[in-house]
Amino acid sequence: MLQPSISGDELSISALVGSVAEDLKLPLMQIARKVELGYLEGKSAEETLSDLDGIASDALKLMDSYSLGLELGERQQLLELEPLSIQAVLYDTAQEMDSMAKRYGVELELNTTGARHQLIMANKTGLRAALLSLGSVFIESTATTSPRPTITLAAYKTAQGIASGIYSQTADISPGALALACRLSGRARQPLSNYSTGSAMGIYVANNILQAMSAKLRTSRFRHQGGLGMVLLPSRQLQLV
């Protein structure tokens, strides 16, 4: 089930950069405190470094996604589309999110039974960046709000096209809350305060990237789970056999 899409007011780059800086504090603090704890506990360098490597790598991936989203939002440009396997994109994104999910104790599920072998028109880099940005918000929030945290990356057919998104048991985000979150991004400390402690920049960025693909971020539901998703047009040119 899909809800009407959102639109946000224009936002100054400085406000957005401020929000990105706020989001970047968290992985850096995690690194600093883990190093300190490692010293206190006399942990081996290998143990500590392996943890830190994961945090740093995930933060860098996220910053790349944020850069893309902010640039697209600033320049209002469109991304080139190509036929892609939505199953493959979701699988690759799940692989990228896996280390962060493990660190937070969140289980990742992939469900593309409703859209297996479907090709969609999208930009591969953009779509992965959008999903990664959304995924990071979902992982941090679900870990906080759920006793058995699980998020699902899913794709399924709808009358309008192939719907795809990220879902969880605790992501009961209304269309109004999503619209407000995007409007308040960069302005409010916690634009999605009932779901996340962070700046919701991942949602704002995902929305920008999707708009550059002529798609829009919407609230949606998948098998009794709430979430955020998008509808992508199927490719008519090729069909996987």
Binding site: Q30, E36, L40, E140, A143, T144, T197
Partner: peptide, 16 residues
């Protein structure tokens, strides 16, 4: 503490 990673670190440190 809402962040799971920081929570683990703070808890371990304070227990020590």
């Amino acid at each position: 503490e809402p962040d799971k990673i920081l929570a683990q670190v703070y808890k371990a440190s304070l227990k020590r």
